[in-house]
Design a protein around this nucleic acid. Sequence first.
DNA 1: TCGTGCTTTGCAACCGGTTGCAAATTCTGC
DNA 2: GCAGAATTTGCAACCGGTTGCAAAGCACGA
Lengths: 331, 331
Amino acid sequence: MAVTLKDVALRAGVSRSAVSRTFTKGASVSQKTRDKVLAAAVALNYQPNILARSLSTRRTKLVGLVSNNFHNPVFLQVFDLFTRRLQDHGLRPLLVNLSDETDPEASIQLLRQYSVDGVIVASSTLPPEFSKLFAEAGLPVVHTFGRYAEHPDVDTVGIDNFACGRMAAAALLSQQYTRIGYLGGPASATSSRDRLAGFQAELDKRSDVQLSHRFAEAYSFDAGRTAMLQELSTDPAEAYFCADDVLTIGAMSAVRSSGRSVPEDIGLIGLNDMEMAGWDSFSLTTIHQPIDAIVTASVDLVVAKLGREGPQDAPKAHLFPCHVVYRGTLR
Amino acid sequence: MAVTLKDVALRAGVSRSAVSRTFTKGASVSQKTRDKVLAAAVALNYQPNILARSLSTRRTKLVGLVSNNFHNPVFLQVFDLFTRRLQDHGLRPLLVNLSDETDPEASIQLLRQYSVDGVIVASSTLPPEFSKLFAEAGLPVVHTFGRYAEHPDVDTVGIDNFACGRMAAAALLSQQYTRIGYLGGPASATSSRDRLAGFQAELDKRSDVQLSHRFAEAYSFDAGRTAMLQELSTDPAEAYFCADDVLTIGAMSAVRSSGRSVPEDIGLIGLNDMEMAGWDSFSLTTIHQPIDAIVTASVDLVVAKLGREGPQDAPKAHLFPCHVVYRGTLR
DNA sequence: TCGTGCTTTGCAACCGGTTGCAAATTCTGC
DNA sequence: GCAGAATTTGCAACCGGTTGCAAAGCACGA
């Protein structure tokens, strides 16, 4: 069925090596044979089998793209960028959806079975220990949206969640809010905890400010809405830092459905600045995260690791600066 | 570096075939050797190389997942479902982002090079001719969200866009709208044109109804907003059928920013019923498309094709019923 | 104990490529 | 036209698996 090296060699009247060499650049072939081979290849519509090649070359050009965030709209943009950037480097994303997998070991086995050249873990909810397992299995790995550490176990690209927490606090303080709440994602997510820590650190400087906090079940609309409804049922704060835009939107929905309004009764500030945040139904004041730069850097990093052969440099955390985008959800 | 068959065979004191056979079910191995092999495999942390295996078995368990809809939030859900359903069958999605590729030939070459077992084209904007090229290249292909035809060139799963157009028309007529507009996605998308055709067919029955139409540049918020702003600048209709929810949300944004309100001044009905449609900021009246069923059927279909060896059954279109979900955007 | 039939095993060829090496060819300069 | 160097070529082994086939091992009944 499929056209192979041998078929082309036969038709071109040369050896299989000659055909192989015309398709691997830098190899020694005369123009004459190359022309013959190319003609035969075109005539037969030959496509080299990358997988067979990978047996010898030990390069599949496959990159595992592992994520568990399939419910946050910002990740559609993330996947779009990742696939494009990887394609720019001739790499192919093998998508692994971890949502219903609890066992990291399974995906590691999987990716090793497919001999992926590298792995990108794109998740703000998986812990560093998770990515570390990939590294220990000998796979070059980059953790995008991962937790910052001065000496991380794996290369990490993302933002300084602690600093973002401070930034959110400063924004709320500058608007003279004094009864303040934090609405996090899942308590198990490091991003949730780190953002709270930074937020807290900044607010602790002020003795006149009260801080409460609550973790939502997930970074999702429903979770944000549910958590905010609980807040509203007792004694809500004047303003909330929500750890993610989609959470913020859920919270806003809860506020409005309780008959209150944003920002008049309750102020909100989010994080991400996803496309939707600018839509006029929401008009979120939020902390902008430079997703494109983060994704591009992640891909560049993994590409650099693939190039190197032997021992890698020590893993490093790459942080990108964020800034507040003021729209309409703070007074 | 990597542990291979030979290493395991050596350690277990058996031949390579014995090792291979313990890892392919249905093969003839005695319990005794199987135990020895398994013990050695565990000790060495052996993972069979699927790509090497695929050379002999001609099965990679890779499925090309081709799409160009990375800007419509509903596709995040689509990707989530596809990856899960494929994983359920032990298949792995190789994601191909066609957004900036104009040449289908390139992705066909790519997928042939990786010897994918099958291809799923998940797009409502790519024409049937596109998927046909994959089929002609000998790849089992299913076009999800593709155009209905009685005798399609490739297996197609989706909804009856024409019928949805009629359904939208009926919904608007039942609310006594008489000056009616259609806001489509790109004019090049068959889904856009078919929905209009059905819409038109139903409205043509009524001589007292005026119909105008306009195509947006894309199925996106910005495109919907821009198109609606143009409508508003002249003489807008009383109600619009927008060919997609995200388009509807863009249109709603335009309506509101012009000082008008939905549904008081202008009624809207969308299509998809994506999760966001139910969020109370939007509360879209829209036509529900059973995405989960469509994706599941697509995967089942491609799995069935992989099982069969020889000539395939004639391609068929699989249609799923839609229904109107009434929320708050019609009077 | 031997012959029979069934199961298990290893050999060797193959899947579709790559690549070191030595032989064959072409190119230099004289 | 020729020696020597440089380039091109094909052979054969290898990448990590699978599998048809024949030989070896085994259990069983006579």
